[in-house]
Computed example of a mutant assay.
Amino acid sequence: MQLPRAIRLDQSDQHVFERPCEPGEWAVPGGFAYWEVDPASLEGKAQLAFRSGWLGLTSFGHTTLVEIAEIDEAAFFAAVERLARHIEATYGAPNFGHALAAARQEIDDAAALCEHKLGTLLAVERAPSDEGFVERFRVIEPARAADHAKIWQVVPDDDG
């Protein structure tokens, strides 16, 4: 199974977001955090998190980029439970059962975005729309040595 995992290519997330998440955290797009928010009312770092932030599932901070990574079953279910507890505590789910269903749907949706090679980067872009907001995802496939033809080879020197 594959899931988005936070990655930090430079230090910009530490300056862009109020609470940056740590590299290696499992992540979801996190659009649910803006369901009852008027995007036009957001300013500064909150606006940047709305526009381009993925939600880390350990710190519940944000990251600009995620990479597609393998997740084992135990880590998957731990992430679902952690998100459910966050949804219940932060967004007022009526009970843990409802929060668990919402968390599972959110993580299943995030996993559905991961139908690319491991290591592929994903970015999210949110923009206001008539229905609230729209999310678009950008796929960035990094160049990998294994994807290229071998063009030279080191051989022993015959003079020795």
Rank of each mutant, 00 (worst) to 15 (best):
H15A: 07
G44V: 01
A99H: 02
A40L: 08
Q47V: 05
R104M: 10
V80K: 05
F77Q: 15
G56Y: 03
C114Y: 04
Q153S: 14
D158S: 09
A143F: 11
K117Y: 10
H86A: 14
P128A: 13
E18A: 15
Q105I: 08
A79D: 00
S41V: 09
V80T: 05
R8M: 09
A75W: 02
E115S: 13
E135W: 06
L113S: 02
E88I: 04
L83V: 01
A146S: 13
I107Y: 06
H86T: 12
A27I: 04
P23Y: 03
I71M: 03
A69C: 04
G119I: 00
A74Y: 05
D10I: 08
E43R: 14
D13P: 11
Q47Y: 12
T63S: 15
R126D: 00
A89R: 08
V37H: 02
S129Y: 01
L55F: 01
Q11H: 13
V139A: 01
F76M: 12
Q14W: 11
D159R: 15
E22N: 12
E81Y: 06
A111G: 07
P20C: 09
D72M: 09
L9E: 03
R19A: 12
I71H: 05
A111I: 05
E22D: 13
K117G: 13
D130N: 14
A99L: 03
V154F: 12
F60S: 03
K117H: 12
E18T: 13
C21T: 15
E125Q: 15
G53N: 09
R82V: 09
D130E: 15
L57Y: 00
C114F: 03
E43L: 12
L55V: 01
P29K: 07
H62A: 14
A127V: 13
A27W: 03
C114A: 12
V37A: 02
T63Q: 11
R8V: 06
L3Q: 07
L42F: 13
A40H: 15
V139W: 00
S12F: 02
A69W: 08
A103N: 09
A145G: 06
A78P: 04
V80M: 04
F17Q: 10
I151Y: 11
I68N: 03
A146E: 14
L121P: 00
E70P: 11
H15G: 08
T120V: 14
E25Y: 00
W26G: 06
E43D: 08
E25T: 04
G92T: 06
I7H: 00
S59M: 11
P29I: 06
D72W: 09
D158P: 13
F17A: 11
V28F: 02
G160V: 03
L65G: 02
A75H: 05
A112M: 11
D158A: 12
E106T: 01
F50P: 03
G119K: 01
S41W: 06
E36W: 10
W35N: 15
F60I: 00
G56D: 05
S129I: 01
E115V: 10
F60L: 01
L9G: 02
V155N: 06
V66I: 09
P4Y: 03
E115R: 14
T64E: 14
C21W: 11
W54T: 07
L83I: 00
A27N: 04
V80Y: 02
